[in-house]
Design a protein around this nucleic acid. Structure first.
Lengths: 255, 255
DNA sequence: AAGTGGTCTAGACCACGAT
DNA sequence: TCGTGGTCTAGACCACTTA
């Protein structure tokens, strides 16, 4: 890519839309997609931050927020004194822990076709855990949905989600994307806390996922919150670890 | 904690030492320790960012970098319009994926006593994987160290580390902390890429960790780099998932 | 209306790498 | 010496919560 191409490539009209979120996130999304698509090839150097700020018509601070996220995703190397380079050893079906989106949207972003099979749903009395995590009052019910997630026909994950009934009064509406429904009712979460561990599949889970019994899988517990701080979703899922894994860059301590 | 105490508590002399790294990291470390130690109690509100900037004698931007890290660690809640609050449901033996330090230092930070038993070490011909990951030339050897990590007498993890011989000429020096040795020879990494998955323990591993065969554990592959970008360490470890897990906050997409 | 976190700017200096 | 990423500042405006 020569200089004249760069000018257009990083220009704001290619990555910024008013109302689609902050600039640093839109720019990060644009660059990440360009790298995944190969439009920014492995090993190539990004323009220096000061130049990128100029081309993208934002401040260097904003460029750095977008680019730091790429580094944390493991998509680029930043080397003081020399530059930022697109990392070699291309992407797999992996996921940055710092930018989790919903299963549906993650798979779509990877060019795959996600689907879900609802295994069960309804309104129930909460378990003590659910009462605590979701901050329920005594007598409140929870809506539960249990789904088998598949992409391109391969079973990938089992997820069981619990929400207060006032957030999801009718669990029968949930098909593929829970978050799509929450968004349309104006109660989508804006952040979540995740805990990742490893567990052995139970016989029932193994059958569902067509894996041997006791296979090690990743278990992810996610508690999602509204902007107000109210917890509205607790989801426990198990994910095939041979397909689904987590990658992140860490900065080590020390001066 | 009233106003007069706060003044001293957040003053720079309590958290900043020249030569001990950037301010935002030192401030983050200080606040994180204060929360873990209970000096900032669960549910209490941090001073507003502007006030904290004033007390700590840094700019608000620097305060935000430190505080954003606490949020990403899952230690505080930030709520626009109301404030930042120490999260309830205190810390466990868990680890933020975004601030990994070495096993030894992690356990010490938790007030536990780490130790290691070296199961084997020496110089070997590299596997093809090691040659690729570490960027070796043909004929180069690798130094390998395999250790059983325990804290307070409980086996927690098995780790096998491989490094180029010019970085670790004498693997016999490694006892508890590999990174302490690397630092003393001036070749400590400053960042790493980690991949987290789940695996079943092999019979040999299970015996070492005193766990049933095929127990699900977390497998973490880490490639560590010098500031120059040169890869100098590849470590594969398996960690008891009932003790060791990962927690992170995620921000969800959307305007 | 006041207070809080969220975004963004323009500019400065430092530490390190390449030359 | 120069270019690069890394740190830090002082200040502005916006979006949201609380009162």
């Amino acid at each position: 890519m020569d200089g004249s191409e760069k000018t257009g490539f990083f220009a704001p009209e290619h990555w910024f839309r008013k109302g689609q979120g902050p600039r640093y996130r839109q720019l990060h999304r644009y660059l990440a997609k360009a790298i995944r698509d190969g439009r920014l090839e492995e090993g190539t150097q990004l323009p220096p931050e000061r130049e990128l700020a100029d081309l993208a018509d934002v401040s260097r601070v904003t460029v750095r927020r977008a680019v730091a996220q790429l580094a944390s995703d493991g998509m680029i190397d930043q080397r003081r004194g020399s530059g930022s380079f697109v990392r070699r050893g291309g992407p797999r079906l992996e996921q940055s822990l710092s930018t989790l989106i919903s299963f549906t949207e993650l798979m779509q972003a990877r060019g795959m076709t996600p689907s879900s099979q609802v295994l069960g749903r309804g309104l129930f009395m909460p378990t003590p855990d659910e009462t605590t995590v979701l901050g329920l009052s005594s007598g409140d019910q929870v809506a539960r949905v249990e789904r088998l997630r598949t992409t391109d026909g391969t079973p990938i994950a089992l997820e069981r989600s619990s929400l207060p009934v006032d957030i999801l009064p009718d669990p029968d509406l949930v098909e593929t994307s829970l978050y799509a429904i929450l968004r349309s009712s104006g109660s989508a979460p804006n952040r979540a806390i995740q805990r990742v561990t490893a567990v052995n599949l139970t016989p029932r889970e193994a059958k569902m996922l067509a894996l041997p019994e006791a296979t090690a899988v990743l278990q992810i517990d996610r508690t999602a919150y509204l902007a107000s701080g109210r917890p509205i979703e607790f989801t426990r899922g198990v994910y095939r670890s041979d397909i689904y894994d987590f990658v992140t860059e860490v900065r080590l301590e020390g001066p």
